[in-house]
């Protein structure tokens, strides 16, 4: 019971205290308007380059936009503990660490899904984007799995952010790199071999591919493999992020470096 409370209520409290974008005046321009313009930008760039139609860029960037909630959310919810000098209080608690850290992913995941939904709706209004209504349930599942997977990647980045002076560098850089590597705008097959290899280890790459197939009319069973890989990648990042957090926590205790930024 206590772990469930820490998972949900602790996650909510952390979100309220540490998420810099929660005020409406910041949330709307940063989390909604900016990704909507991101889609417009790449859709027009796609039209000019002649690479693909609007659907390709809308679906790719809409799934990628979950990262704005999941990556920034997780990096802020973990990295800000250090910036605000509250990390020592967090690790002084006897709470189960799984509930403590993974509970913080719930609202960023919800946020990522909200952002994706918003940008898809604006794309219907502003671009030539259409998706059959029958594809929506399967599409929703792809969005959910992608958001969870991306949040676990965010957990890993958030753990690293505990060691950095400027948490914005790691979040901005990761978000921008994902625009190139996850297939939102350029098919991974077009990238050089080493970039393609990195791309296949990142969250969202398989989710974006699955989402495009679903939007083109594929059934959920036809993309189950891609969704499974996406979930597996998320699982690996969850373990990695958790391990890093425990490692840094132990290092901080050992070296008495809790409040060193």
């Amino acid at each position: 019971m206590n772990s469930a409370r820490v998972f949900f209520r602790g996650g909510l409290l952390a979100y309220k205290a540490l998420f810099n974008f929660k005020q409406t005046a910041v949330y709307i321009p940063t989390m909604l308007i900016s990704p909507a313009f991101q889609i417009l930008f790449f859709a027009y760039l796609g039209r000019y380059s002649g690479l693909a139609d609007d659907n390709f860029f809308v679906v790719g960037n809409a799934i990628q936009a979950t990262a704005i909630g999941c990556i920034y959310g997780m990096v802020l919810l973990l990295g800000n503990e250090r910036q605000f000098d509250t990390f020592s209080a967090v690790i002084a608690t006897s709470t189960r660490r799984g509930a403590l850290y993974f509970g913080r992913a719930v609202l960023p995941i919800a946020n990522g899904i909200v952002v994706t939904t918003f940008v898809l709706c604006t794309s219907v209004l502003l671009l030539d984007f259409r998706m059959p209504a029958t594809a929506l349930p399967a599409f929703g599942i792809v969005v959910l799995v992608s958001a969870v997977s991306c949040a676990m990647f965010g957990l890993t980045l958030g753990a690293l952010a505990l060691r950095l002076k400027d948490i914005w560098i790691i979040s901005n850089l990761s978000y921008t790199l994902m625009l190139l590597l996850c297939g939102a705008n350029v098919r991974p097959a077009v990238l050089p071999g080493w970039l393609h290899a990195i791309s296949s280890c990142l969250p969202l790459t398989h989710g974006i591919e699955a989402a495009r197939k679903v939007a083109d009319g594929a059934a959920l069973s036809q993309v189950a493999g891609l969704i499974g890989i996406e979930a597996l990648i998320g699982g690996v990042y969850a373990l990695l992020g958790y391990a890093l957090l425990r490692l840094f926590e132990a290092g901080d205790r050992r070296g008495a470096t809790l409040i060193t930024v």
């Binding site: 760039l45 796609g46 000019y48 380059s49 002649g50 690479l51 693909a52 560098i169 901005n172 850089l173 921008t176 790199l177 625009l179 190139l180 705008n185 350029v186 098919r187 077009v190 990238l191």
Partner: peptide, 24 residues
């Protein structure tokens, strides 16, 4: 430094791959 040296290069790469794979 990140905003002026790294991010623009990433966007340049995206544009270049798009132009190459497209018709430009």
């Amino acid at each position: 430094i990140m905003s002026s040296l790294i991010e623009p290069v990433i966007f340049a790469a995206i544009a270049a791959y798009m132009f190459r794979a497209g018709n430009r």
